[in-house]
């Protein structure tokens, strides 16, 4: 398992899984503390109509237009959610719930009415992605990691996801203080002259970048789980924001590795023949970690 086969078949999906998990978990910390955790859920649902519209416009399953369509839909949803929240004066969770279900449903209808039978575009793909198929055929062993010719054959999702992770990490690093201040005490932050509105929007846009980049590779299940589970589990491990974010990144990476290995080999270990969905297993593992933290984490909130 540690040889050429591992490098070609398992290493790329595991690395992509780690990038997806960490890229979503990092902003998830702030979304959770701002009581906006559902926005990850919302974004990963609304990208479906965006992708379908992009397909209908271009007539091809090309990554570029699809990402643009998905990003467009995500931004439209964020704006609509905000408008509903302000004009309707309802809680943001309710606004998100309405918008993302409606847009996802519209996406399903569009998908059904359009002729996508001959291309790889369906609701199942949107939910679970296809992590297992992201293999690296040019790899012949660990040495391929240093071989430029072989590296050129890496699944394109890996560098794309690594870039998304870098964007997310850089954003959080640079705007750490304003984000922490405005998340804890928005009134104080505004009194200091911080533009908390654009900052909050930037956080959502960065989350959308992570979600849209991840969606194509792994579907929405992992995205939804990773925006919430690692951060929620990490909150129960520490009472300090920096450590919480570090814990959440660790939990996310752990979920990706353990989930992928369990999905691929777990069924064999218990005597079953076929493997199960890696995306589903990664999300499940992150849920189990959350459950463990809720039972045994040192900084659980006291039950009142």
């Amino acid at each position: 398992m540690m040889g050429a086969e591992f490098v070609a078949l398992s290493l790329p999906p595991i690395l992509i899984g780690i990038c997806v998990a960490v890229a979503c978990a990092l902003p998830g910390n702030f979304l959770l503390l701002r009581r906006q955790a559902l926005i990850g859920d919302a974004i990963s649902h609304v990208v479906l109509p965006g992708i379908v519209v992009a397909f209908l416009v271009t007539g091809a399953v090309a990554t570029g237009p699809m990402l643009i369509g998905a990003a467009g839909a995500a931004i439209a949803a964020v704006v609509v959610i905000d408008v509903i929240r302000r004009l309707g004066r309802i809680e943001s969770g309710a606004a998100m719930g309405v918008v993302f279900t409606a847009m996802f449903a519209a996406g399903v209808l569009l998908l059904e009415r359009s002729d996508t039978s001959n291309v790889h575009l369906d609701v199942e793909h949107a939910l679970f992605g296809n992590l297992e198929s992201l293999i690296w055929l040019d790899a012949t062993g660990w040495a391929s990691l240093l071989d430029p010719a072989a590296l050129a054959g890496l699944p394109v999702e890996l560098p794309r996801m690594a870039l998304a992770l870098l964007v997310v990490a850089l954003f959080l690093f640079v705007f750490w203080r304003p984000l922490a201040m405005s998340t804890f005490d928005e009134g104080f932050a505004r009194g200091m002259g911080l533009r908390t509105g654009p900052l909050g929007l930037a956080l959502v846009v960065v989350s959308a970048i992570a979600a849209v980049a991840a969606f194509d590779a792994v579907g929405s299940i992992i995205v939804i789980a990773m925006f919430i589970c690692p951060a929620a589990a990490a909150r129960m491990m520490t009472n300090r924001l920096g450590r919480q974010v570090a814990w959440s990144a660790g939990f996310a990476a752990l979920s990706a590795i353990v989930g992928y290995v369990l999905a691929g080999y777990g069924p064999l270990w218990v005597g079953a023949s076929a493997s199960v969905s890696a995306a589903g297993m990664i999300a499940t593992v992150s849920g189990l970690i959350l459950a463990l933290a809720a039972i045994a984490g040192p900084h659980r909130k006291a039950v009142q």
């Binding site: 503390l33 203080r177 804890f184 009134g187 104080f188 909150r235 009472n239 924001l241 450590r243």
Partner: peptide, 30 residues
């Protein structure tokens, strides 16, 4: 500016000293 105490989430993961350091943001910068 000192907002109403009830306006913030006191469950936020931060220590007393970190809250006070927030007051020095204009000195510290990004």
């Amino acid at each position: 500016y000192v907002p109403q105490r009830a306006s913030v989430d006191w469950d936020f993961p931060t220590r007393v000293i970190d809250v006070v350091l927030m007051g020095m943001y204009r000195q510290l910068g990004l």
